[in-house]
């Protein structure tokens, strides 16, 4: 029972709700050069960089679903985009089981870029055109850079959220 209660999915939802609220209240209202920094995506890629691509995909799926529920996007659209972002960031574990902080940041940057780019592409696939414009060249780097900068701070949260314990990292190293 305890395993179920403290399991990753039940940690993901409350943490995701708080992250979503921070996104809506703080980052949604304070754009940087006209671009809204994506805190939820930053958390997703941090979870991916900390726990691997499968955990990143699941974190992206759950947090993306929460994003969809609270917004105007078709349910599953942000989940798909963020799932891809988390999965990409998690590929850092293909290189090393315990990545150094700067390597995690690089993969978080790439993962966030993939996740943010996937949103307008998924919108086009679902019939909501109009967002693939030259503005993406500004939006994506800013969102990705912010995610990379937040990654060292959010990676411990991401690991806890996904139930990756410290002894598992050690075991991975050994």
């Amino acid at each position: 029972m305890r395993n179920v209660v403290v399991g990753p999915l039940l940690r993901l939802v409350p943490v995701g709700l708080i992250a979503l609220s921070v996104q809506r209240v703080v980052f949604g209202n304070h754009p940087v050069h006209g671009v809204k920094v994506q805190f939820v995506l930053a958390l997703v890629v941090a979870a991916g960089a900390g726990g691997g691509s499968d955990r990143g995909a699941v974190a992206g799926f759950v947090l993306g679903l929460l994003y969809d529920f609270s917004g105007n996007t078709p349910l599953g659209l942000m989940a798909l985009a963020y799932g891809l972002g988390g999965m990409t960031a998690g590929y850092v574990h293909s290189f090393t089981p315990d990545p150094q902080w700067w390597l995690a940041c690089i993969f978080a940057f790439v993962g966030a870029a993939v996740g943010e780019t996937a949103v307008p592409i998924a919108e086009v696939v679902t019939g909501e055109s109009g967002w693939i414009t030259g503005d993406l060249l500004v939006t994506v780097p800013i969102v990705a850079l912010a995610a990379a900068m937040l990654c060292p701070l959010l990676m411990p949260v991401g690991r806890w959220m996904m139930g990756v314990k410290r002894k598992k990292w050690k075991a991975m190293l050994e």
Binding site: P74, G76, T126
Partner: peptide, 21 residues
Amino acid sequence: SRRRVILLVVLTCMLLITLDK
């Protein structure tokens, strides 16, 4: 396996998008 998780996520998303649309 990793591939199954990712495939499951993608398929679930597509199903949800279709249902919501």
